[in-house]
């Protein structure tokens, strides 16, 4: 994978947000967004933890904190997966305003802590 590099301001921002990740209210919200058919609906394509009836178009979402350099890089991926693979089947959640910036961050918070 060739991710585009993040700029320092975002690194600081993501450090702040990593601190928020330990907040259970935030992660609960991120889980809800990831499972909700009218929001992230990530389960349509990905196995995620205990989510019911997942599809299999994308890989299982697990151990992402080991696969991505930092939260910002994960967020960028979800924001627009076309940056990484122009032929991707994954919708550009940020670029096409399917999730707001705040919602995107909540999803990232949730996913980051998954084993």
């Amino acid at each position: 994978m060739n991710f585009h590099s993040s700029i320092p301001a975002f690194v600081i921002l993501s450090l702040v947000l990593i601190a928020c990740a330990s907040n259970p209210v935030q992660t609960g919200q991120g889980r809800k967004l990831a499972f909700d058919r009218n929001k992230g609906n990530c389960l349509a394509c990905h196995v995620i933890a205990d989510g019911e009836s997942p599809g299999n178009i994308g890989p299982p979402l697990q151990a992402l904190s080991k696969r991505f350099r930092d939260q910002q890089q994960l967020r960028d991926f979800i924001y627009d997966a076309r940056q990484n693979n122009p032929e991707t089947s994954m919708p550009p959640f940020g670029a096409n305003h399917i999730l707001t910036d705040a919602e995107l961050q909540q999803v990232v918070d949730y996913l980051w802590d998954l084993p």
Binding site: L43, A44, C45, S53, P54, G55, N56, I57, R82, E87, S89, P91, P92, N96, H97, I98
Partner: peptide, 21 residues
């Protein structure tokens, strides 16, 4: 908004599952 073509689902991903479909 989801940026799909017909081909994304019925060619590229034919045989895979979207949720249970």
């Amino acid at each position: 908004q989801l940026n799909f073509s017909c081909a994304t689902c019925h060619i590229q991903n034919a045989g895979k599952r979207i949720r249970t479909e």
